[in-house]
Design a protein around this nucleic acid. Structure first.
Length: 669
RNA sequence: GCUGUUGUAGCUCAGUGGUAGAGCACUUCCUUGGUAAGGAAGAGGUCAUGGGUUCAAGUCCCAUCAACAGCUCCA
């Protein structure tokens, strides 16, 4: 008699010996058809495995619809890779080797470091291991034995992990395949033959347990699929994705430039990129006006004292450009015998008079608020600025437009009463919805950052925090899409709502943010006169729906893959002559288009039409306007759509009206 | 900041110690062609920068700078 206990807790009994397949078939013929293998107490077994009789057997049937299927196979492949590395290299310490979104990795510490030159040998060895077809066998150990086993294997990271990283009551399981044994929760595929196709991709450093103070390990990234075709498709998709990389398109379309001589992470906006940025700023300004914002301008520097008062200087000193110190003051210090190390100390402590390139706009906006007496009747006050800030980002982090050292926030600070807070947050969220909606960006996630109850880094009254966190939650709900609540993601001064998108290679970037702040009004002693004729403290909201113009446009370039909608395209249309004979008519049409306010350039070269069209397509111009003798005769242009191709000839005025309408409606295609 | 890879013409890249190369782009000429590449010629280089090894360095070694991938960080 065989008793089977299924994952939902139900029991099934069989009179005689049965295989996994028999059980699957008894549940349903479709299940039997889709089933790939079984798991008995997390030990993978093939379909023809005969179940033990007597005690109930915990059986899970894995089908090709199981969501974790690919992850399981990739994790098994990680074991195979680690085994291969240990065969090739001596003194290999194993760390962790999980599956990831696009594949898997394994972290090693090698006495003889790995290089990408080792990849072919590792891949060859992996294939040998797969061909051996040894199963992954699950071995459960008591804690003491497990530690001893890892010590015998000379796997110090695993020993440490058992002793410090795993809870007392965790089951300690190992998976063994031939000579290779690894501490691992599982599950695995029953046979390495299930790994269809794999490829080692890159090698990089990674800190043990993600902590910079721990030793740095070598991480080998790889991927695996059930068959070669899927792997090839994945690699081709990766290549395709790289073509929409904003750094590639930014160069090809002449949008921006970063020059070594200017400095790392400092963006030079070229005319076409600057145009797009200006259009976006105009667009958002329009919505700011509608929502009752006042635009202000503030300078790029401010006294160190300002940032000492705001708290930015002490908190974030290492990520700021060093202070600019007055010449006379430096001379005075020098005359007083101040050494370089004395100066360095003074600068670090901020015990010096100087100016800081502004890392944030809020202190300046606060000073605008406090420059007048404020009444409850004035609130909410909404101050907006496309404010450029400078941050000394770590050199290894800088790249493209998404992480830079000088960037312009579409920033605003709202000074509100407690009663106004919830409503104003909703207004901010509305703006984000408007902006993302206008771009056709629907693929973003929302994160409400709350305080970590175990941390002491937060400032302010816990009761206010509770109110603010609740207000953020309620505002996020008005988006009508799922959001996550992450404890520990709040800023030190208040909770926030962040908008996160992915770039073309799957990296996540925070764009817009809305943050509640009780701290700065306190530090600057902000007040307004209440209806009760006593002073009250306003609450601040920091918000930036785009985040920074640089990062937003970087993401936007990839979102559109360079194919900007007509209202944003720096060159909306290009006029092409079929031959030199049509030049005069071409210039006439060109003139009419420009007079109608359209951004049209002319290609009057003595090239063949096909060649001009190709150039226009590669430059991602939304429309091409082709004029030849036939058009000259009829007063028409032939429109070629970037997407649809040839649309045929229409009267010039009709073409103008069509484009104007598309611009007016900000159509996204 | 850390680990690894890379740096050659405007762009994409080849160049394996012995005279600096290709395609595209650019300039000029020929060509007048109706929806993704017409032809020819020409010009264009301190091989990232600074040291070192060598009779000889784009190539080997060291340092610096920058880019890329990842880690760490991100008000």
């Amino acid at each position: 008699m065989t008793t089977v206990k299924l994952p939902d807790g139900s029991l099934k009994e069989f009179d005689s010996a049965v295989s996994v397949y028999d059980v699957a078939k008894s549940i349903g013929s479709r299940l039997a058809k889709d089933a790939l293998w079984g798991e008995i107490d997390d030990q993978p077994v093939e379909m023809d495995f005969e179940l033990p009789q007597g005690e109930p057997v915990n059986l899970k049937i894995i089908t090709k619809k199981s969501p974790e299927l690919l992850d399981t196979m990739r994790h098994s492949c990680a074991h195979v890779m680690a085994r291969a590395v240990m065969r090739i290299k001596k003194g290999v310490q194993l760390a962790f080797g999980p599956s990831t979104d696009g594949g898997f990795y394994y972290d090693f510490e090698c006495a003889d470091p790995l290089t990408e030159d080792d990849f072919p040998a590792i891949e060859k060895e992996m294939q040998k291991i797969i061909d051996l077809d040894e199963p992954f066998e699950r071995v459960v150990q008591e804690r003491e034995q497990a530690v001893k086993l890892c010590q015998d294997l000379k796997q110090e990271f695993k020993v440490e992990h058992i002793q410090t990283g795993l809870a007392e009551d965790d089951t300690l399981s190992f998976y063994q395949q031939g000579e290779f044994v690894d501490l691992c929760r599982g599950p695995h595929v029953p046979s390495p033959k299930r790994i269809g196709a794999f490829k080692l991709l890159s090698i990089a450093g990674a800190y043990w347990k993600g902590d910079q103070s721990n030793p740095q390990l070598q991480r080998v990234y790889a991927t695996a699929f059930f068959n070669q075709a899927e792997l090839d498709e994945h690699l081709a998709n990766q290549e395709e994705a790289k073509k929409r990389d904003h750094r590639v398109l930014g160069k090809r379309l002449n949008l921006f430039h970063v020059d070594e001589m200017v400095g790392q992470g400092l963006i030079l906006w070229k005319p076409k990129g600057a145009f797009i940025r200006q259009q976006l700023q105009d667009f958002i300004s329009e919505h700011l006006t509608r929502q009752g914002y006042s635009q202000v301008f503030t300078p790029h520097v401010g006294k160190l004292d300002l940032y000492k008062t705001s708290g930015h200087f002490p908190y974030y000193q290492e990520s700021q450009y060093p202070a600019l110190v007055d010449r006379d003051y430096l001379k005075k210090l020098s005359n007083e015998g101040c050494s370089c190390s004395d100066l360095s100390n003074l600068m670090e402590k901020g015990d010096i008079e100087g100016y800081l390139l502004k890392p944030m706009n809020c202190p300046h906006h606060i000073k605008i608020y406090s420059s007048e007496r404020r009444s409850y009747r004035d609130l909410p006050i909404r101050l907006a600025e496309f404010g450029t800030v400078y941050r000394w980002e770590q050199s290894g982090e800088i790249g493209g437009l998404t992480r830079v050292r000088g960037f312009t926030q579409d920033d605003a600070h709202l000074f509100v009463t407690q009663e106004q807070l919830a409503g104003e947050l909703i207004g901010c969220i509305d703006l984000v919805k408007t902006v993302f909606g206008a771009m056709g960006m629907n693929d973003y996630s929302v994160r409400v950052g709350l305080r970590d109850p175990d941390s002491t880094k937060y400032v302010g009254d816990p009761a206010n925090w509770d109110l603010a966190e609740q207000a953020c939650r309620e505002a996020a709900e008005t988006l009508g899409r799922p959001f996550t609540e992450d404890a520990g993601e709040a800023a030190f001064y208040g909770p926030k709502i962040d908008f996160v998108v992915k770039d073309c290679i799957g990296r996540k970037w925070q764009l817009g943010t809305v943050q509640v702040d009780y701290n700065l009004p306190e530090r600057f002693g902000l007040e307004y006169m209440g209806a009760d004729n006593t002073p009250h403290r306003p609450i601040m909201i920091h918000r930036a729906p785009f985040g920074s113009m640089e990062r937003f446009i970087g993401v936007l370039i990839e979102h559109f893959a360079g194919n900007f909608p007509l209202w944003l395209a720096p060159e909306q249309a290009r006029l092409l002559t079929v031959s030199d004979k049509s030049e005069a008519y071409g210039k006439e049409v060109h003139g009419k288009m420009k007079a109608a306010g359209l951004r049209v350039e002319g290609d009057f070269r003595s090239e063949k039409l096909g060649s001009k069209i190709r150039d226009g397509q590669l430059d991602m111009v939304p429309y091409m306007l082709i004029v030849g003798p036939r058009d000259a005769e009829n007063g028409t242009v032939s429109i070629r759509d970037r997407v649809e191709g040839d649309l045929g000839a229409v009267p010039v005025e009709e073409a103008i009206a069509k484009f104007q309408q598309e611009v007016e409606q900000k159509t996204v295609r």
